[in-house]
Amino acid sequence: MSELATERAIDRSKMSVSENVAIQITNMNKWYGAFHVLRDINLTIYEGERIVVCGPSGSGKSTLIRCINRLEEHQAGQIVVDGIELTSDLKNIDKIRSEVGMVFQHFNLFPHLTILENCTLAPIWVRKVPRKEAEETAMHFLEKVKIPEQALKYPGQLSGGQQQRVAIARSLCMKPKIMLFDEPTSALDPEMIKEVLDTMIELAEEGMTMICVTHEMGFARQVANRVIFMDQGQIVEQNEPEPFFNNPQSERTKLFLSQILGH
């Protein structure tokens, strides 16, 4: 797992972290019933950041990023996304969700719609883009993820890697400011992992703000500007990739890295 995500050199010209805050999380807590899943999370993410979140299973990584677009509700603290605070106000929630794209471990494409329809649905119904324009945008992004020829097929007719790339294109069609990835490659075979990672790397090269939960440490090394390590619902350590991998501070992090990197 420690090998590089891509052989080629990464174009860093557009990868710049701005001063503007994209996501601000302060003293955020979440419980599932009596179970304290997320404990006092404080995190500031700037526009253009590429953040990789890692940690052992059950540590609350998914829960954290799902709180950012309110797929999960937090009970205490504050989450501000793109200047809007997440409260129970449905209008704000829908607004944030249309600005924040999300890619799931199991793709979650809509099986009753063609690839093209999957990509145009939200722009047409949420953003009120005319159908023709939405289809042009969709084809643009499908070309970008290198599967324009599949546009008229149904998700069930595509391989896993292709489906995940469609899922990415579907999110991109909403022209989001922030992209969330929840283990986008965990359900894929090694060959397909590469396809998807390539797509994600290209996205990063264009300056997209990304938060990825992933165990692809090669991707973290090459693309991330910050790696966050979580355990037991807390942020245990965060740092730039080089020091994070080469010189972890916390015992837990060391243990986790030694397990995952296979030393």
Binding site: D94, R97, F107, N108, H112, L121, W125, S171
Partner: peptide
């Protein structure tokens, strides 16, 4: 699967649109 609801939510579809465009077509089928 729960993922269908989540994907619809994550794209910013409101409850009725999600039902009409994503959930019901599949559930009815």
């Amino acid at each position: 699967p729960k993922g269908q609801y989540e994907a619809a939510d994550a794209l910013g579809l409101d409850y009725w649109k999600a039902q009409r465009l994503i959930i019901m077509p599949q559930a009815l089928k």
